[in-house]
Design a protein around this nucleic acid. Structure first.
Lengths: 162, 162
DNA sequence: TATTGTTATACTCTATAACTATA
DNA sequence: TATAGTTATAGAGTATAACAATA
């Protein structure tokens, strides 16, 4: 296949996705924000496939992970870590409490504050979820080499740094 | 600050985010899927800040971008490109039609199919949106060097390849 | 029958606003 | 007054199911 010479300074041809039969111009194929959105769609898809039956949503899982690693952690701290509003954390914790995975207690030295702990059932469930999460991540980035995965994580961390 | 020697084979200490005052263990700081979720939160935040008043949502914008680059494109094709269900594209197109930015016509040679075009008003609005989108992307990745941005995009493309 | 598209509906995730209780 | 947390609610984004029209 040959191509005509391109005028000096002319834009490069649009990149294309899904170069199958009816390929169309994909003006967003160069957009980091758009590609991140597609990547997250894939990540959620992978999550749902792997966590089916485990009784947690992606957001619920992220809250549970922070409670597992930080027994007694407060809702406000979780909200900061996850970059969401405290009201959302409250709702997610409600679901985890209803599922019997998490308990709320009151901080004696700061009666306004809640302290979040996993229940025994929560700890047991967490073991399987932790394994499942490792597998899910591995599948998510399975198209990348180990070095590329590290690079990807490093770039994301730099992008998110504040 | 000194640290005790670590037993051979022991896990490295948990990475921490937001190493401010009350830093907590962030067991998800190594998870590509979780970091992608945080990155998308930032991307939407940036979108809303920059597109305020332009009358489109992120999903609506992505549909409009495909119509702008592919006059006459069909809803099903857009659904494939955006990796969402056709029913969602229908709703997003409804909103763009209601806003006067897009028109639906019927394909004469395939009466089942719709053909999507921008209106004159849509084309005018699109010019500003395209500029805004470039700025938004630039701010989204402003912590990265140009080379890192290219690397980031390349890794995302590889990750998404199917 | 299979394909294209749409409507109706439900669920997840997030944000804002209003409220209670404590500091 | 300011802070920690919660409830109530709304909006965006996605999916599934049921349907109509066309191939």
């Amino acid at each position: 296949m040959s191509s005509l010479p391109r005028a000096k300074g002319a834009a490069a041809p649009r990149p294309r996705i899904a170069a199958g039969n009816g390929a169309i111009a994909s003006p967003l194929a160069d957009s980091p924000a758009f590609l991140v959105r597609l990547a997250q769609l894939r990540a959620f898809e992978e999550f749902h496939r792997n966590f089916a039956g485990l009784g947690v949503t992606p957001a619920g899982f992220s809250v549970l992970a922070l409670i597992a690693a930080n027994p007694g952690v407060r809702p406000g701290t979780i909200a900061e870590e996850l970059r969401v509003k405290p009201s959302n954390v409250a709702a997610l914790v409600n679901a985890l409490v209803a599922a019997g995975l998490v308990e709320r207690t009151v901080d004696e030295a700061e009666l306004r504050a809640s302290m979040l702990h996993m229940t025994t059932a929560g700890a047991r469930a967490w073991q399987e979820m932790e394994r499942t999460h490792r597998d899910t991540d591995a599948r998510f980035v399975e198209a990348l080499t180990p070095a590329e995965r590290r690079q990807f994580v490093a770039l994301l961390r730099k992008l998110l740094h504040r």
